[in-house]
Design a protein around this nucleic acid. Structure first.
Length: 377
DNA sequence: TCTGGGGTCCTAGGACCC
DNA sequence: TCTGGGGTCCTAGGACCC
């Protein structure tokens, strides 16, 4: 028997919220929402107990970054505006985002996984792909179960993550990244799902098309308009139909995805392409009336980008800006310089040149500064 | 109760060069 | 006077993901 390709997708369960629960164990089982600004720090009372802000009465433009499963039971989910979440679950505890803490636990869980299986693709703070094909034991058959070996390896990885961090995760193991990403959600939280290619029709086809990583809100609506709701519906369409409606490249990809076909290799090393900073204001600002404040924030964003570049040892040749207006329309402008830059004056100046090319009639909701075309110094 | 912040990749048109 | 292709770079917008 030739060795089989086994790719795992590991997804930490409600990651930010779970890290907060390690710090505040008294919140276990309660609806907790992470998001918003710095205003909602817990207060430590003289007796040693803590009091927490709740969602009730929240006013602002924040969104839910993560919600505990207890909060999700009220219909709260990530990306939802905090105002709406407050209407659904006013009693839910609201905690501010603490990225430093999450990054710390992110490094811990990834290092723990690497002890068992070193071939890892980073997919952000709380997800990774892992190639299990060459991990000792993964190709073993246990009794008549040809997937028993890889299941045991995946379980060992889950145990290791739990030991190292106190956090649970969900894992999908299949022959490729596309299927593993779907599989890791099939038994969430704290689950493990192993699927073979032969199980695609029974386990994957009944799912909605939006479960496929790469079919987003727009494509989802377009497919629904054509009566294509499940992955089975999509798999039933031929290539020509899909390329006709979605273009050659995306159409072909849709066809492959529906059939569980995905040859992509793991990307174990990558260089950043861009670095950016952006901010949404508490209230929409007017280019003339709020000029001083806009200028101050604009300069600050440019300086933050410069600091980020210098800290990581990069310079950017293309400097860009982003504005979102009160009608939510977003525009970008960028400028490619003769040489890469990383100092705040150069970035601020180039960003200023970009800003001159924008019509500032509407009020501004968001402002951002970006450096692209990065080169390592 | 409208919709954060940080990214990647793709497309498409125009400039410019050979 | 009017006609080519092909390739690369730059810019703007948009889809999508975590």
């Amino acid at each position: 028997m030739p060795p089989r390709r086994w790719i795992a997708h590991l997804d930490m369960d409600a990651f930010y919220a779970s890290v907060e629960l390690l710090r505040y164990p008294e919140l276990a089982g309660q609806p907790v929402v992470i998001g918003g600004g710095r205003r909602h720090q817990p207060v430590l009372l003289p007796g040693g107990t803590r009091t927490f802000s709740t969602l009730a009465g929240y006013a602002g433009r924040g969104v839910v970054t993560t919600a505990t499963y207890a909060a999700r039971d009220f219909g709260v989910h990530s990306g939802m505006g905090l105002m709406k979440a407050a209407a659904l679950a006013p009693q839910a505890v609201l905690l501010p985002v603490d990225f430093d803490q999450y990054r710390h636990y992110s490094r811990r869980f990834k290092a723990a996984v690497a002890e068992v299986a070193p071939v890892i693709e980073d997919r952000g703070i709380d997800e990774i792909y892992i190639d299990l094909s060459d991990v000792p034991g993964a190709q073993d058959t246990i009794g008549f179960d040809t997937t028993g070996g890889v299941r045991a390896v995946a379980q060992e990885i889950r145990n290791t993550v739990k030991r190292a961090t106190g956090l649970s995760c969900s894992v999908g193991v299949t022959p490729n990244k596309l299927l593993s990403k779907i599989a890791s959600e099939l038994d969430k939280p704290d689950g493990l799902t192993v699927l073979t290619q032969a199980e695609v029709p029974t386990r994957i086809w009944p799912l909605p098309v939006r479960r496929i990583n790469g079919i987003g809100p727009k494509a989802g609506v377009k497919l629904a308009d054509m009566g294509i709701r499940t992955i089975a519906d999509l798999a039933a369409k031929d290539r020509a139909f899909l390329t006709e409606h979605f273009g050659r490249s995306y159409g072909r990809w849709l066809h492959d995805a529906a059939h569980g076909v995905d040859d992509r290799l793991l990307v174990t090393h990558s260089e950043p392409v861009s670095m950016s900073r952006e901010t949404t204001f508490d209230r929409d600002l007017h280019a003339v009336r709020d000029r001083a404040e806009l200028t101050r924030i604009f300069t600050q964003l440019a300086e933050q980008v410069a600091t980020d570049l210098q800290k990581k040892g990069y310079a950017g040749r293309t400097i860009g800006i982003k504005l979102r207006f009160d009608d939510f329309k977003t525009v970008t402008r960028d400028l490619t310089l003769p040489e890469p830059v990383a100092d705040k004056a150069a970035i601020r100046h180039a960003a200023g040149q970009c800003l001159k090319r924008v019509d500032l009639a509407r009020r501004i909701r968001l402002l951002g500064v970006r450096a692209g075309g990065l080169v390592k110094l």
